[in-house]
Write a protein that binds this DNA or RNA. Structure first.
Lengths: 206, 206
DNA sequence: TAGGATAGTGACAGATTCTGTCATAAGTCA
DNA sequence: TGACTTATGACAGAATCTGTCACTATCCTA
């Protein structure tokens, strides 16, 4: 057993696993291309699998639903943001840490402005996808609440932590949408920063 | 023309319209009963229409999708809240107005605690429905932003207004979920109030 | 009140998503 | 190499959703 884990040094995972990853990626990429080209609903699963040459049944083994495929296209961004937030020094205030984490996850490779715009456009024009994406963000909220709780030494299920996490998610989504609605500013970050600044003031002052 | 609108005094809308409303309500009620009894996915459209004795095709004329049916079950609450908020005196601060509007819409007839709990349970155990519900709240957010903008004399598409509206939606949803997670407090209002109080303080202080 | 316009309805066919199942092939590990 | 696990393809089938058409009930106007 202990030797087994040592034998597979170079190929951290076996040939099968690599093949699996590749198929998954191929499906996602082929789907993205088709979605951006002719829209989400107009693209059928049959078309996607034809592009990768696998059976329709196989598709649903990789992605439980067609929507999950779209989530997979964008979820990396959320994860990277959370990772960045986790790694910010504890001395920083939440405000600073969140802003910095935003900048970091923005600098990461995945953020190709063109792709992000296409992705946001896809969400915008497909209510079902927007819903699914919100749900995904909603689920990640609990994770974010944990990270925040760890920083402030409070309880993760504290209503305030849930609200802070929700507000951050809300801010990012709202700011990104506002950014996508305009063409002047090519970089999304300023929009997010402005949103985060709002969170430094009471949203409903007495 | 002018006389026509006078002739239909008592039946504000004709027989056909009343029949239509009744069918719609019957579908919603039959569906709610089945959903609460055996779950959303386990309930087929065929079963719902059988209970009301209409054709499946008719169902989709009333509700574009099965999910829309569930939205119809709960959307009154959002509308009533918005109405209440619209009618609060302008002198009140947003904080006071929102709190009062919450109390008012809570007092309305629709809020049967048992039904609300069933509804929230339905959302909780069916991710697709939760997603759809979030999307609905998201769409209502723009309306709320308009109401807020009218009070503060600002632009409805202002990022800050969108965030305030989003935060209020977020607060209500989060608080309701927290309330549904416990059994001690039978009334949901205190949870919402506590959430709204959080909005009186900065969520991300410098 | 009659008759045409409008709108709800049922029935059918079909597309699409998604699930269950099983045999086959490929890959893994001892 | 040989047993074991896992991915895959193929098929059948359920459920959601859409297009269409003819029929009927309701409504409006003359």
């Amino acid at each position: 057993m202990s030797t087994a884990s040592l034998t597979m040094e170079f190929p951290k995972v076996g040939l099968a696993a690599r093949k699996k990853d590749r198929t998954r990626r191929q499906l996602a990429e082929a789907a993205a291309e088709l979605f951006y080209e002719k829209g989400y609903t107009a693209t059928t699963v049959d078309e996607i699998v034809a592009a990768v040459d696998v059976s329709p049944r196989t598709f649903f083994r990789y992605f439980p639903t067609k929507e999950d495929l779209v989530v997979a296209l964008g979820e990396t961004s959320l994860d990277q943001f959370l990772d960045a937030l986790r790694n910010r020094p504890f001395e920083e205030s939440l405000q600073v840490a969140v802003t910095a984490a935003t900048a970091e996850s923005w600098a990461a490779e995945w953020v190709d402005t063109t792709k992000v715009r296409s992705f946001l456009a896809l969400l915008r024009e497909t209510p079902a996808l927007r819903a699914r994406w919100l749900e995904e963000a909603y689920r990640k909220r609990d994770l974010m609440a944990e990270v925040i709780a760890a920083r402030t030494g409070t309880c993760p299920s504290d209503l305030r932590n849930l609200m802070i996490a929700g507000a951050i998610t809300l801010t990012i989504n709202t700011a990104l949408q506002a950014w996508a609605d305009q063409d002047a500013e090519p970089n999304a970050a300023p929009f997010v920063y402005r949103g985060l600044e709002e969170l430094a003031t009471p949203l409903l002052p007495d």
